[in-house]
Design a protein around this nucleic acid. Structure first.
Length: 818
RNA sequence: GGGCGAAUGGCGGAAUUGGUAGACGCUGCAGACUUAAAAUCUGCUGGUAGUAAUACCGUGAGGGUUCAAGUCCCUCUUCGCCCACCA
């Protein structure tokens, strides 16, 4: 009998798929449904793939192969996300150009990809650091620039002192740089932004229509952070200046007893009296310099009085103006009205600095008075609020805003936590921002026909540390002429955040090598939006940015959809056997190629990673578990060999025939439905059950026709998970030229799933007391009689009064006795 | 502090969404083959009692709804993730 040798057959089939270009997708084919599925494209690191990648890619591959076998026109592309810090940091350390190391890493990743048996359309391979690609990243930038959505602004920005670059909010994790982990600082710099805030409401609303995990949707909603409230103007006592504040609780206006400005607020200087000047300046200087981590958390509140006052428009009271760093400059107006009786933070501050506290809300009746000793932030009825006394807080919010509007000193307003997307990077290894700074014309976009602005080759990758990109040192590149006036001008030296490159790559796949446009609208609208997008990272950043760009380009006619991803499969991590994260430093990394080469092969690895648990949960690697999956594939192989080797052919009796058809069709149904529902782990167990069923039936001998069909279906159902062995077994049975990809997915027939008799579970008072075989269409009376005749049922019903009987046809009979 | 989610054998996990809890796999035990081991194959494997049939208990804890609850409702505990001075 021929032995199962995974490495030999895998090599063979990978070559066939390469030569035959089996997995090429056909643009614009309307004769069959299309399916577009992709993983979040990998960053090709020097370390190569790890088993976590394999899980991610295999999910995509299983979906792609399954739908292809269903007759879909499937697009399953791959590309490489190559701009970014790791390659550049490596260059700084070794002097080796990022271009060179990137090329090596891509070659390595590509080989590994092929060795996993991925059904990729290789003609669409893309690489974000290739000028052919970043040409169009720059074009995208210019579309945003033309419409005013890419703009330059001087502001305090996150700055990583180690990587010597600014960072986006999304790249600061717990006050630390997402790349190197060092503590970030605030630095005032002129930076490029994309105005994602213009799309805040659309980004929020779009979440309602997409099939994404609620976890991710919630994170995006939190990130956008929409608050409904009011903007209120306070007049400064004496000089007529106006300070605007944002509040979600306009109903507490009568309880506002002081006003607080963020240290960065533009009026701080002006409003500070001479007596207070020194302390205010000192306070602001240290507060602004303090890192955000120090300003966050449960630290005690600090602040300083400016010496000025505003007038409360509702009460006419003079309210002192303070400066305190618990008020954030970047949110709302950077100023608040403090209502210490009804806000924890204001209360703490008022207590510390002995400021007045006025209660203006009487809590609703069901609130325990003991809970309201200090401050109360819940709902209730207004008190001490003039004409509004007695009004419920929810009504008062509207009425007070209406009153403010009448007075012309306020209006309702919506505020977001989300800030604009900072995209400038003072680094070399990124797409150059295609802008020319002209002393006469200002910021001028590089004409589209001059794109791409090529990234020059350099030797010195070290950032200067003064906030300038290494590109600033390349004078021949920096100095140019203004495309508008022709006079000398300088190029922008910042490069774009890598997330800009990944914000549109899903559309580039549909028209990967077009040198006339970023994408052909006909092609992109045929394929996109994605039916499935698979990843385990970038819950907010990348997944928010692609949505933003989809909305922008849809608005300008380049796309006919506004949500780029219909269904998101967010997969969990693969951890070490002990449950800890795999990491190089711990030395517990499992290399997928080692697993393959140890003799298991890619099919076992793939199938195991699908079987390990629900795809969305983290899972721990188990050496026993993978051995079990190998055993399963080996048993499949041996069964097919036995069938082929056995010269005798048997004629099966009708019961055996029915039993064979039953296990066969149960498997088809279960695997098919599970794959539609992305329940990969239970699909694999259904395959195992199918094999177990077949193994039991083989003792009756092999009926040639029926077994050929049954084993052929096994190959077919197995193919999405273990494509090499499935194709090899199928070819052995049906000839070398047969290809599972050309054969239709098996269909199940309900008539084989039910037999003439079915088992009914019998309960007495809800406890299982036995089961009986009855005809499928048995009458309830007959079932009851049979059940009561069962000795073990009778034991519990004899001598008791039967209260009622509940019969669920085909399932259960519950006899209730007293 | 706020939000989301989870808790089922020795382990990973099943359970058609209210209808026979523990599928499938791992581990373990016993047996077959073998001079022997590995591999392979067969059987058993939630707990307690019993040779067994079977009974009782059992899905984090407590209560409730129901003929019937892992599944629905209330209270609590523990764990995980995300956000966090956002006015």
């Amino acid at each position: 009998m021929k032995r199962y040798e995974p490495l030999t057959i895998e090599n063979k089939w990978q070559e066939i798929w390469r030569n035959e270009q089996t997995y090429a997708a056909v643009d614009g084919d309307n004769s069959r449904p299309k399916l577009y599925v992709a993983e979040m494209f990998p960053y090709p690191s020097g370390a190569g793939l790890h088993v976590g990648h394999v899980r991610n890619f295999t999910i995509v591959d299983v979906v792609a192969r399954f739908y292809r076998q269903q007759g879909y026109n499937v697009l399953r592309p791959i590309g490489w996300d190559t701009f970014g810090l790791p390659a550049e940091n490596y260059a700084i350390k070794t002097g080796e150009s990022p271009k060179k190391t990137t090329a090596q890493n891509i070659a390595n990743f590509k080989t590994q990809y092929q060795r996993l048996g991925m059904a990729v359309d290789w003609s669409r391979e893309i690489n974000t650091s290739d000028p052919e690609y970043y040409h169009w990243t720059q074009w995208c930038f210019e579309q945003l620039f033309k419409t005013g959505l890419a703009y330059q602004k001087e502001s305090y920005q996150w700055w990583c002192p180690v990587d010597k670059t600014v960072l986006a909010n999304e790249q600061v994790e717990g006050g630390k740089c997402w790349r190197c982990g060092s503590e970030v600082e605030k630095k005032k710099m002129k930076q490029w932004f994309f105005k994602i805030t213009d799309y805040a409401d659309q980004l929020l609303e779009g979440l309602d229509d997409i099939d994404w995990p609620t976890k991710i949707k919630t994170m995006q909603r939190n990130w956008i952070g929409r608050s409904q409230g009011a903007e209120i103007e306070f007049k400064v006592d004496g000089d007529g200046q106006i300070i605007k504040v944002f509040t979600t609780r306009p109903d507490t206006l009568f309880g506002a007893t002081f006003l607080v400005l963020a240290p960065e607020h533009r009026l701080v200087n002006e409003l500070t009296t001479d007596e207070q000047r020194q302390s205010v300046q000192e306070y602001c200087r240290t507060a602004i310099k303090k890192s955000e981590i120090e300003r966050q958390g449960d630290h005690e509140k600090t602040g300083v009085f400016t010496g000025s006052f505003v007038i409360n428009p509702a009460t006419g009271a003079r309210m002192p103006i303070w400066v305190a760093d618990y008020v954030l400059a970047g949110y709302g107006e950077g100023a608040i009205m403090a209502v210490p009786a009804h806000d924890q933070r204001d209360y703490d501050f008022a207590k510390k600095y002995d400021l007045p506290i006025i209660k203006v809300i009487d809590p609703t009746d069901d609130v325990n008075d003991d809970d309201v000793i200090d401050f109360y932030s819940g709902e209730g009825k207004l008190i001490n609020s003039g004409d509004f006394d007695g009004t419920p807080t929810s009504d008062a919010r509207e009425q007070i805003v209406a009153w403010l509007e009448e007075q012309g000193i306020g209006h309702s307003k919506v505020t977001y936590k989300m800030r604009d997307w900072l995209i400038s990077r003072q680094r070399y290894w990124g797409a150059p921002i295609p802008i020319i700074h002209c002393p006469h014309c200002g910021n001028v976009a590089v004409p589209e026909e001059d794109l791409p602005v090529m990234l020059p080759d350099i030797d010195d990758y070290l950032p200067s540390g003064d906030g300038q990109s290494p590109l600033a040192k390349v004078e021949s590149w920096v100095n140019t002429t203004c495309p508008q006036c022709g006079r000398p001008a300088k190029r922008e030296t910042d490069t774009m955040d890598g997330y800009a490159c990944s914000s549109w790559y899903l559309w580039r796949y549909t028209d990967a090598h077009d040198d006339k446009q970023a994408w052909d609208p006909a092609k992109v609208n045929y394929w996109a939006p994605l039916d499935f997008y698979v990843g385990g990272d970038h819950a907010v950043a990348h997944l928010l940015y692609v949505r933003f760009w989809a909305k922008f380009f849809a608005e300008h006619g380049y796309l006919n959809f506004t949500e780029p991803v219909k269904r998101l499969l967010y997969n969990g991590y693969i951890n070490a056997p002990d449950g800890h994260k795999m990491s190089k430093s711990k030395g517990n990394v499992i290399d997928p190629l080692d697993v393959i080469d140890s003799g298991y092969g890619a099919d076992t690895l793939r199938t195991y990673e699908m079987f390990i648990g629900p795809y969305e949960l983290d899972a721990a690697w188990s050496t026993g578990g993978i051995a079990g999956v190998y055993r399963f594939l080996n048993r499949c192989w041996n069964l097919v060999q036995e069938f082929l080797d056995d010269q005798r052919r048997a004629k099966l009796d009708s019961d055996t025939q029915l039993e064979l058809l039953k296990v066969q069709h149960i498997a088809i149904k279960k695997v098919t439905n599970d794959l539609y529902n992305a329940q990969f782990n239970t699909a694999v167990s259904a395959l195992m059950e199918y094999l177990n069923g077949l193994s039991k039936l083989k003792e009756h001998g092999f009926d040639d026709k029926m077994w050929r069909q049954a084993l052929g279906d096994l190959c077919q159902l197995l193919a999405p998970f273990a494509p090499h062995i499935a194709n090899e077994m199928y070819a052995e049975m049906n000839g070398e030229d047969s290809r599972l990809d050309n054969i239709e997915w098996p269909k199940y027939d309900e008539k084989y799933l039910t037999t003439d008799t079915i088992k009914i579970a019998i309960q007495v008072n809800g406890k299982l007391r036995g089961d009986i075989e009855v005809a499928k269409d048995a009458e309830q009376n007959d079932v009851e009689q049979l059940a009561l005749d069962q000795p073990n049922v009778a034991r519990f019903t004899d001598g008791k009064q039967i209260v009622k009987k509940i019969y669920v046809p085909g399932k259960i009979l519950n006899i209730v006795v007293k």
